[in-house]
Simulated scan of single mutants.
Amino acid sequence: MTTPILHHYPMSPFAEKARLMLGFKGLAWQSVYIPSVMPKPDVVALTGGYRRTPLLQIGADIWCDTSLIATVLEHLQPGPSLFPEHLKGLARIVAQWADTDLFWPAMGYTLSPKGAAAMFANQPPEAAQAFAADRGAMSAGMTRLRPGDATSAYRSHLRRLANMLHEQPFLLGEAPCIADFAAYHPLWFTRVINPAMAGILDATPGVLAWMDRMAAIGHGKPSKLTSTEAIAIAAAAEPAPLPQEAFQDDHGIALGSRVTVAAQSFGTETTEGTLVAATRTHYTLARTDDRAGRLHVHFPRIGYVLKEVKA
Rank of each mutant, 00 (worst) to 15 (best):
T271Y: 05
A150L: 01
A118T: 12
F266D: 14
A236D: 11
W29P: 04
P186M: 05
F14K: 00
I62W: 02
R159V: 08
P35W: 07
P35G: 08
P205L: 01
G206E: 13
R146A: 15
H298L: 13
L208Y: 00
E74F: 00
A116D: 06
H86C: 05
G267T: 15
S112V: 13
R135H: 11
M214K: 00
A182Y: 03
L201D: 06
V72W: 00
F266I: 09
Q96G: 10
I253N: 03
A216H: 02
V43F: 06
V305C: 03
M138F: 10
G303E: 05
Q77N: 12
L20M: 04
R213E: 11
W63Q: 01
F83S: 02
I302E: 07
C177V: 06
K40Q: 15
K17C: 02
R160K: 05
A95S: 14
T100L: 14
G89H: 08
A116W: 00
S36Q: 05
P39H: 14
I193L: 07
A60F: 10
L255S: 11
E85V: 15
T100M: 04
V207M: 02
S257A: 15
P169V: 02
D202K: 06
L82R: 00
N194W: 06
Y50C: 03
W104R: 10
T143G: 03
M197S: 08
A45G: 08
D65P: 02
G173M: 03
Y109L: 12
G256A: 06
H8R: 10
P39D: 14
L73E: 03
A140D: 00
T100R: 08
P113M: 11
P147W: 11
E308K: 14
